[in-house]
Design a protein around this nucleic acid. Sequence first.
DNA 1: AAAGATTGACAATTCAATCTTG
DNA 2: CAAGATTGAATTGTCAATCTTT
Lengths: 126, 126
Amino acid sequence: LGRIEQRLEQALDGHGLSIAQFDILASLGFEEGITQQELAERLLVTKGNICGMIDRMEAGGWVERKPDPEDRRANRLFLTRQGKMLLAQAAPGQHALIKQMMSALAPGEIQSLYQFLDRLDEAAGS
Amino acid sequence: LGRIEQRLEQALDGHGLSIAQFDILASLGFEEGITQQELAERLLVTKGNICGMIDRMEAGGWVERKPDPEDRRANRLFLTRQGKMLLAQAAPGQHALIKQMMSALAPGEIQSLYQFLDRLDEAAGS
DNA sequence: AAAGATTGACAATTCAATCTTG
DNA sequence: CAAGATTGAATTGTCAATCTTT
């Protein structure tokens, strides 16, 4: 399974992005203005991890923390114009790659694959 | 797929082992006396990673570096008695878990699953 | 006290550079 | 020079502790 990740990684490398960074850009592209805590839940990582990731990506000029006007504890996260441009450039390649790799399986096979993985995951949760 | 790894991780946690450490113990249990470079190839990680892992595991008293008598550049890796005991304690639980999770699929389904994953991996390698 | 964020210490990983030996 | 190992910096991740705000 490593080659799949490697391929996605390699495609992002041309844009100067890691997979983790792309995931954050894509998440914020889908719903802007969420808090760091919410982003951590979406991506199934810890608050501490998100905090560090956002630190670097804010320094890189791709995302912005804006104070929540109604809760002074919280930051709301937004893409900068640069971040939106970068996402627009990188996302099509990722989607194309996934589509291309998925085309190695027939639609019914994809469904079976997901079902098998779900059942394995289910068996693990006990 | 995260729950599967989590479950294996959790079972190892009781023995004070991480998955990466267990992989090294299991590798050396299977073929002792290999070099760090060889171990890196088996586990598909870098020499630098193995070097650090062995540093910590040697400090923990689980593995030993012994100088290769015929090539003064190389270290040969061995399990200590403690390492062998730890592996003997931890391995059955891992095997049982994998067997249990795999039992969620019929034999033919397992074969199909591997075939699908192989084909995805194949499609990625281009 | 609980929630949101930050920080610090550590593990595991990569890569590039270096040192020693062959 | 190439091979084996080590080291240093960087990223991504965890967890626990802390600080501010609710």
